[in-house]
Amino acid sequence: MYLGIDVGSVSTKFALIDENKRLIFSLYIRTEGNPIQAMKRGLKMIREESSFPIRMKGVGTTGSARYLAGLLVEADIIKNEIISHAIGTLNFIPEVKTIIDIGGQDSKLIIIRDGIPIDFSMNTICAAGTGSFLDHQAQRLGVSIEEFGDYALRAKTKVNIAGRCTVFSESDMIHKQQLGFSKEDIIRGLCEAIVRNYLANLGKGKEILSPVVFQGGVASNRGVVEALERQLRTEVIVPEYHKVMGAIGVAILAMETTHKEKEFNFSVIDVDFRTRGFECDGCPNQCEVIEVLREDLVISRSGDRCRRWEVGSLEKTSAFVEIERG
């Protein structure tokens, strides 16, 4: 069996696959701002859920916290989310030509031709139109995020909402509410705005051919799916496992890299992991060095441009001795 873990900004995803790349078990939980806790929680649930001993041949991590996650579970492969998503989707829909992924804080567009990812784009610094924005608006309107999409489907009139910027779009929504439009109409307007923004921002200059696959947390939102279909004038496929596609992808990548069988060490659940940071004063660069500790042992340091703090290499330097003493 192979395990893929996708630790994102909003949610953490787990996928277990077998030798035939079949999904055996998957899990989607909220990261709640604490990726270490979320991973432990997820692993605990996997251990409790599975009545059989899990023989793991490989573990892969992806998502924005992929390096931290990789450290925790001693991953065999750590891969960026673009490739992981592409590999995951290709496994289920080999003929896919376009992958649209909208997650918690970023959105991606991956162009695939002949089964190979050939181009991609990601949203720039701004997170307008991603999952966490929808979350926030649902909360403001008093609608649960699960029902959000269905509201859009019940809309009767067309309302234009500015979608370029989260802040402007919120004030525009309030304005439209004050004009007396219903919640349903406004939510549909918002779904349209998100798609318009996505296509203008990420789709610029890209050839979006069908089959188009839509995945990530926001793909659960039927209002956004419908808006995509309307604006692209083509059918949009939302695969069954759209929420965990990145985790499945990196599990497959782990399978392609490793072959040694070992018992998965669930004991990491009970181990204390901590992160702490300090500013290096070795030179005017003032790098913010980030340390990850397992119990009281530093297992990784990153963020230093010159690599002087790299674990293993620095025990000799005097600066290290001072820090340890001090």
Partner: peptide, 14 residues
Amino acid sequence: LTRLEAFIEIVRRR
């Protein structure tokens, strides 16, 4: 980093 990693990988696979 994510963009560079993904880009280099796409170039290699292509």
